[in-house]
Amino acid sequence: MAGTAQPSEKSDGLVFHPMDQFIVEPLFGSGPIYWYTVTNVTLWMGLSVVALVLLMLVGTSKRALVPGRAQSVGELAYGFVHKMVEDVAGRDAVPYFPYIMTLFMFIVLSNFLGLLPMSFTTTSHIAVTAVMAIGVFLAVTVIGFVKNGVGFFSLFWISSAPLALRPALTLIEIISYFVRPVSHSIRLAGNMMAGHAVIKVFAAFAGVALISPLSVVAITAMYALETLVSFIQAYVFAILTCVYLKDALHPHH
């Protein structure tokens, strides 16, 4: 996999390539990567689908009244996201719950799968997170105009502020509205990329006998932190989607 750093025969010093784990490569053979090529992206996204099927379909297939472990986790995920949508975006946002659940489950499963050694972290790529963020941005904007018509513009016209300040605030609001997909996507990809790269740097230091114990401790600590970050970033992505959805459904401040 891409995660294995290629030890360079040419140089003798401490060589590490923390970014090599993010390389996209074809699964079969080597050649140019077209949009349809089956790559490690395909493999790890497919594995996230497999994990989803195991958790949400196989785990719940017994429909037990008293749930087992897998069913408990599936129900926990359902209840967690459903409550988040209801609390943050309101009751009328519940029809959009499956979409937000899709995003949350994909991100959280990809993040956790990316923590496996030698794995490829699909959510560490800005192309992946940007597509999701732009999708949320477009969907929320369309929903805002469909539900409220021209009234959606009241999101930018803050009626509670003094009249003199309103034009300036409107400018700020419009800029922040269009910056949303950027921050939304870079936050997730940046977090995932940075954590994995840091682990990789520490791992390279493990080759030096003198500092290897420290390196192992540091990797362990970073891994624990990354486990936390993997969940929190999926949660943040989902909750921000809910916040944007709330703005679209209720643009009045």
């Binding site: 990567i33 992206v41 996204m45 379909l57 899709t102 192309a127 992946v128 990329m193």
Partner: peptide, 26 residues
């Protein structure tokens, strides 16, 4: 690698496929 334009079409395509599959399953 995140900024490599050659790979983006591939990632976007497989992401859309994955999200559609996940959405249908869910």
């Amino acid at each position: 690698p995140q900024l490599c334009g050659d790979w983006m079409a591939n990632q976007v395509f497989w992401l859309v496929v994955t999200l559609v599959v996940i959405f249908i399953i869910l």
